[in-house]
Design a protein around this nucleic acid. Structure first.
Lengths: 338, 338
DNA sequence: GCTCGCCTTGACAAGGTTGTCATGCCTTTA
DNA sequence: TAAAGGCATGACAACCTTGTCAAGGCGAGC
């Protein structure tokens, strides 16, 4: 079907003007019911689809939502795309993906895209969502944006996030509930806001259950497998080692598992291990990892929703935002203290 | 900067007609050098960017390349996107991502996208690249497409792939070079073409080195961790077990590692393990996995290149295609026979 | 019966670019 | 010297839709 059906043919077939067809397509009011029906029939009969270029040229919408990312985790990135698409499709919007190179001049990469594409909105994932230069450009170009799990300056824009503190609290409580009292913790990258929040949740749970946070049971990590491996070596290579280790993310938890394996510590009989994020790797180890699942798709869908519904910040109010629920995924790597 | 710079302003500033500006922008011939320079200066001075909607409405190009996928592997998907974007950016093209739901009516999902967006080309990843209904729609709409690693009917369209046979051959040769003679093999999902090719490479290498492919050393798997785990249990729970296992993909190889761990078989001292694909999980186990890296980004870039350069099939010729080199990634999970 | 105002519809311009065709100039060829 | 052809450029239409504004029809209120 190389011949393209235009709005004129629909108008001719249904015996109305093109403007009325346009009204029907855009669900505008003030069209009589039977006119509307007639137009819809013609649309179906001709298998007509509005041309998106003409639409965005004439109107104010481009029907394009951008997703900017520079995220090392492919699983995260695809989940964001899937979640955002799900919501966008309902409204006939499409997704433009733009990987950014944070090591370069990000603003210079972003500006031309914004100017040529005129997207209706942009979703920003960590870490670009905390790149001030990018936010500046978006605001200068007047493109609405929503940030996913921003670390800093949350009041600057609309955003969607998860309650890291409460999630870490619940995971710690889960371990305590299993009888653990000596619970090691591996912190995440100190420049990621989530690291502090997760530690905060851990510390709060310990305190509220009357347990001390022992300094020698808290290690600094960097969110990488290697850093988790090394932190675990320090935690486990001592007499009074913890009976459980809660790592701030899954990659580090997998590092812990590897050390446990080497030291012949049975998981979970001798050592319980908990992670955070529910990355694909969590199911690819044996035993499978107990972890926290971020509702990434749902968060991205919420972000798209904020964009599409045009939620705007009221004067003097904080910007619109959504806080989604996490999910504790209890698998085999945690068990009663042995 | 809400005010948008148009081609008219560039024309005015450089003292030429808009058509000439257009010619310069599109690198058309027949523009005097100093005129061209003058226009380019004006473009830079005004920070002008052509409006993509207007461009695609007036011209034949949409400056949009689609990536259709329904791929369970996020790492694969993002690599494809990164590779494709790298090439597209050079020409000012953008990437539209469209996850497809293979369980539904894929053609019905694809058709409206094609009609509204009028993309200049589409990149298809497995398994959608083997979905005949999708190919039919693309051809009916006259949208050029390139398939990545298609299983079937390769002569139907342009495609890019890697030499699975040779890669599996080389990996097997690597193991043989380490002194192994009893090399187990775990096949992949029988409906994936790559499964057959990889087995073929394994068998060829064994044969050419004068080694027998022992039937009890070849197990059927399904590309999943679980299936690798179970196949490994069968392979290793016997007296004359192999000294090396080559799994058709990394997930299954990780399953093998898990079994080895359980059985207290040292890797690689007692058992060498090799995978295929170099997924992120390959570096997240201990010891790290020896595997084959597909140049996925390069393959996607090649696909984009075929689309952008408009490589067309000559009459009576096979369609244009590219065959890229793999890379043998030797890490710690393989070693000399002990 | 008349005016007012709302609902419904249509004519036409606008949006920013590329494609087509015409024009004028300059160089080459007979 | 004249004709032919190529190069550089511009005027204007075309692409397809939405936005603006005007107009006609019809019911309600006086």
């Amino acid at each position: 079907m190389i011949s393209k059906v235009t709005i004129h043919e629909v108008a001719r077939l249904s015996g109305v003007s093109i403007k009325t067809v346009s009204r029907v397509l855009n669900r505008e009011p003030n069209v009589k019911n039977d006119t509307r029906a007639r137009v819809q029939e013609a649309v179906a009969a001709l298998n007509y689809r509005p041309n998106i270029s003409a639409r965005s040229l004439a109107g104010s919408k481009a029907y394009l939502i951008g997703v900017f990312f520079d995220n090392p985790s492919p699983a995260y990135v695809t989940d964001v795309q899937l979640g955002a698409i799900a919501r966008c499709r309902e409204e006939g919007y499409h997704l433009i993906v733009e990987p950014l190179d944070s090591t370069g001049d990000v603003a210079a990469q972003v500006e031309p895209m914004l100017q040529t594409l005129r997207m209706d909105g942009v979703i920003l994932t960590p870490p670009v969502c905390d790149n001030v230069a990018v936010l500046d450009v978006l605001e200068a170009e007047g493109v609405p944006y929503v940030r996913l799990s921003p670390d800093q300056d949350q009041d600057r824009s609309a955003h969607v996030r998860m309650d890291d503190v409460r999630a870490a609290y619940e995971m710690t409580a889960h371990l305590i509930g299993l009888g653990h009292t000596d619970i090691g913790f591996i912190k995440g990258h100190p420049e990621h806001g989530a690291s502090h929040l997760r530690y905060e949740g851990y510390a709060a749970a310990m305190k509220e259950h009357g347990l001390a946070v022992r300094e020698e049971h808290v290690e600094q990590g960097w969110f990488s497998f290697r850093s988790g491996f090394e932190a675990a070596e320090r935690l486990l290579d001592r007499a009074n080692r913890p009976t459980a280790i809660f790592a701030s993310n899954d990659d580090m938890a997998l590092g812990v598992m590897a050390v446990a394996n080497r030291l012949r510590l049975e998981v979970p009989q001798t050592l319980s291990v908990a992670g955070f994020d529910d990355t694909p790797g969590a199911k690819v180890v044996w035993p499978q990892l107990t972890t926290v699942r971020q509702p990434i798709q749902a968060m991205a869908a919420a972000a798209a929703d904020l964009l599409l519904t045009g939620a705007t910040r009221a004067e003097g109010e904080p910007p619109p935002s959504r806080l989604l629920d996490f999910e504790l995924v209890v698998r085999e790597s945690t068990g009663p203290v042995g």
